[in-house]
């Protein structure tokens, strides 16, 4: 099924509850090829042009269509709007994948290494889930943690992102030069109006993690009224703080659920080092 409008799409889903929506199919086809998914029917979202762009709301919010491709989000006009999301889109796989892979697909797949997810988490974005005749607004974090998941027959239509008009950064470690999934990623955004720093760490846990205490602490170290300078020692300490908050001692150790008494595992030490470097560099770039 190839509906040409949102209404047609939600009607199609309502009429065929077993149907699965498909956008760029970069995740979906992988599951089909591996035999993990045999969709009874597909609802293609590619023709719904309204979902492929964005609009503004109440002056301070951008409403992004779920059908925005990574390639589109990487263009300068979008990058000027939400720089961290553009950064994430730029690194989300090889060009062939970014040309068709979408924001909505990235969110619904909710892979631990999904690159847009820490950015949306740091931005405290929310999504609109639509079904025939009704729609609801859910914070991205609730969706990702499973607190409020996508229900059968629902379509992710819009992503609401606050426009902060301040530096924001997404950094990703992959261990190679070519396109790859993140081994760890950090999204960091400044919110000068609220004098806040918001940060999310991706790929180290099933969902992006927010180091709330580290955020609050570092916000207090920044000279918000002046040139937004910060003591380099505070930047380094922020990195360590974030890493310690997001990577548990037991990371990667056998029986990870049990308390590890001998201190952090070797894997935890390595991952913390990576997260700490990413967080330090992200803050450094945001305040440069």
């Amino acid at each position: 099924m190839l509906p040409a409008s949102l209404d047609e799409a939600v009607d199609a889903l309502a009429a065929t509850p077993a149907a699965v929506p498909v956008a760029g199919a970069t995740d979906l086809m992988e599951a089909v090829n591996a035999g993990r998914l045999r969709p009874a029917a597909l609802v293609g979202l590619g023709r719904i042009t309204e979902l492929r762009g964005w609009r503004y709301e109440d002056g301070g919010t951008a409403v992004l269509g779920a059908g925005l491709t990574h390639a589109r989000m990487d263009r300068p006009d979008f990058a000027a709007l939400i720089p961290a999301l553009a950064d994430a889109a730029r690194t989300a796989g090889p060009p062939q994948v970014r040309n068709v892979g979408t924001l909505g697909g990235n969110i619904v797949t909710a892979a631990p290494a999904g690159d847009t997810l820490p950015v949306l988490t740091a931005l405290e974005a929310s999504v609109t889930l639509a079904r025939a005749g009704a729609s609801r607004e859910v914070p991205v974090s609730h969706l990702l943690t499973g607190l409020d998941p996508v229900r059968p027959g629902e379509l992710l239509t819009w992503v609401r992102v606050p426009l902060l008009h301040a530096p924001q950064v997404f950094l990703k470690a992959t261990g190679r030069s070519g396109p790859a999934r993140a081994t760890a990623s950090v999204a960091l955004v400044l919110d000068p109006a609220r004098r806040a720093v918001r940060c999310a760490v991706g790929a180290v846990a099933p969902v992006p993690l927010r180091p709330l205490e580290a955020e609050a602490w570092v916000a207090g170290c920044i000279d918000w009224d002046g040139s937004r300078e910060i003591d380099p020692a505070a930047t380094a300490a922020f990195g360590e703080y974030v890493a310690a908050a997001c990577v548990p001692d037991s990371y990667g150790a056998e029986g990870a659920w049990e308390a590890v008494t001998e201190g952090p595992s070797a894997a935890a030490v390595r991952l913390r080092r990576t997260v700490s470097v990413l967080a330090r560099r992200a803050l450094g770039r945001a305040l440069k």
């Binding site: 950064d87 690194t91 992959t174 030069s177 070519g178 790859a180 560099r281």
Partner: peptide, 13 residues
């Protein structure tokens, strides 16, 4: 830089 285009590379390191 190592890490690839759009990566986390920092010239100082």
């Amino acid at each position: 830089l190592p890490g690839g285009p759009g990566g986390a590379g920092d010239p100082a390191a």
